[in-house]
């Protein structure tokens, strides 16, 4: 039993859990904020130009996260 406890890389396990949760929260938050800016405020039919620009900025940040995921996935890049 003690050898089993030592065999487990607890640090790697904690790191994987923390990074997975943090990455999901960050991506979901970026998407949620982008969605907020694209959505027209009450009483208006269409979102204003500055709101749309902000929406695109947050969408772009999300695209950067996706690009980083692709970078990790493709061994050619690292």
């Amino acid at each position: 039993m003690p050898s089993l406890i030592y065999a487990i890389d607890w640090m790697a396990l904690l790191l994987v859990a923390a990074v997975s949760i943090a990455a999901t929260v960050i991506i979901a938050a970026l998407m949620s904020v982008s969605n907020y800016f694209f959505h027209p405020p009450k009483g208006e039919e269409k979102a204003s130009q500055p709101r749309r620009i902000l929406g695109f900025i947050f969408l772009g940040l999300m695209a950067c996260v996706v690009a980083f995921g692709l970078y990790l996935m493709i061994p050619y890049f690292h």
């Binding site: 890389d9 790697a12 396990l13 790191l15 994987v16 990074v19 997975s20 949760i21 990455a23 999901t24 991506i27 979901a28 998407m31 995921g69 990790l72 996935m73």
Partner: peptide, 21 residues
């Protein structure tokens, strides 16, 4: 979206941080 993003994050984190899931 939330489920697949969580899946994606876990897969990438587990394959690059040394704890395969």
């Amino acid at each position: 979206f939330a489920a697949e993003t969580a899946g994606m994050s876990c897969i990438l984190a587990s394959s690059h941080l040394g704890f395969g899931l």
